[in-house]
Simulated scan of single mutants.
Amino acid sequence: MFIRAYLRASTAEQDATRASDALERFAVEHGHKIAADYIENESGARADRPELLRLLKDARKGDVLLVESIDRLSRLPADDWQKLKAAIDSKGLRIVALDLPTSYQGMNGTKGDEFAGRMLAAINSMLVEMMAAIARKDYEQRRERQAQGIKKAKAEGAYKGRPVDEDLYNRVRELLGAGLGVRATARHAKCSTTTVMKIRDTKKFKSAALESVH
C-alpha cells in the first residue's frame, strides 16, 4: 500500500509540517509507513495547489491520501470540491483523515465483509462531503469576520495592514530577478505562490525592476 501524506498550511508564516509526526504515528499504528509527503503553504480555498496537483499526478489506484483533517484537503466552493473529489476518485485514491474514524478502513484495503465494507464506504463518503461543506462554511465565516474587523479598524483609523516581511520580500525579489518562475520562487522562498505574485505586483518591486533594466 502506497500512502501519500498531504500537509497544508494557509500562509507562509504557518508551519505546514506541523501534523507530520501525527500522520507518521497514525500510519505506523496501522502497520504502514508514509511513502511520500506533499507539503505546501497554500489556501485550501484554491483549486490550483501545486503539491496537491503533483500528488494527483503521482497517484495510482489503491493509494491512500492521508490528511490530518478534511479541511487540510479542501475549503473549496461546492463546484470546485466536486471537481477535486472526481479527480481523486478517478485516480482510485482512498481518503483517510485522522479526525474521521470511518475513513480508517482505507488503511486496510478491501478485506473483510463485503456488505459491511460497502456500507461503511457509503457512510464515509457522506461524512467526507459533510466535512468538506463545513470546512468551506468555516472559511467563509472567518473571511466575513476578518472583513468586518478590517472595516471597523479602518473606520476608527487603526488599520495598518500586515507588516512587510523584508527578508522574505528581498528573497523573492532576488529569485524573480534571477529568472525563476512564480512556483519555483515560492518553493525556494518557502512561501505561497500568492505571496510571490503580490510581491511581484507591488510598485516597489516594479520600480526596482525598471531601475535594473536602465
Rank of each mutant, 00 (worst) to 15 (best):
A36L: 11
M131Y: 04
T195F: 01
L7W: 02
R162Q: 15
L84P: 07
R142Q: 05
P77R: 03
A132W: 00
Q148K: 14
R94N: 07
R49E: 03
S192G: 09
G177Y: 02
A209N: 04
E68G: 15
S125N: 14
G44S: 08
R143L: 13
A135E: 01
G112W: 07
V182W: 00
L7Y: 04
V182D: 11
R75L: 05
R46G: 00
R60V: 14
G62Q: 13
G157P: 01
M107E: 10
K206T: 15
L98M: 12
A158D: 14
L7K: 02
N124W: 08
A16P: 09
Y6Q: 03
G161R: 14
S125F: 09
E24C: 12
Q14A: 04
V128N: 00
E68C: 13
R145K: 12
L23D: 04
R183G: 13
L84T: 06
A87F: 00
E166K: 11
R72D: 05
K137V: 05
E51T: 04
Q14D: 15
L76K: 00
T195G: 04
R200V: 09
F205M: 13
I199Q: 02
R4H: 11
S10P: 10
G106K: 01
A22P: 00
M131D: 10
R162V: 08
I3S: 05
A186H: 13
L73G: 00
D79E: 11
D201A: 10
H188D: 13
T110V: 14
M130Y: 12
L127R: 11
A47S: 07
D89G: 07
F115Y: 12
L93Q: 07
K204H: 09
S69A: 15
Y159N: 06
E166F: 03
T110D: 13
R72F: 06
D79W: 05
M107R: 09
Y38N: 02
L175E: 08
G177L: 05
A35F: 01
R173Q: 07
K152T: 12
L93F: 03
H30C: 06
E156Y: 11
A158T: 14
N108Q: 14
K137T: 04
K33R: 15
E211Q: 13
A153H: 07
R8M: 05
D138Q: 12
D71H: 06
T185R: 07
F115E: 10
L176W: 04
L56M: 10
F2N: 15
A121P: 02
L210G: 01
E129H: 06
S192R: 09
R136A: 00
A209Q: 14
A59F: 15
D165V: 05
S74R: 01
Q14R: 05
M126S: 15
G157I: 10
R142N: 06
M126C: 09
K57M: 08
L176R: 07
N41V: 11
Y139S: 01
W81S: 06
D201H: 05
K137N: 09
A22T: 04
A133N: 06
A16Y: 02
A135R: 00
M197S: 09
V164T: 14
R8Y: 08
G112Y: 13
E166C: 08
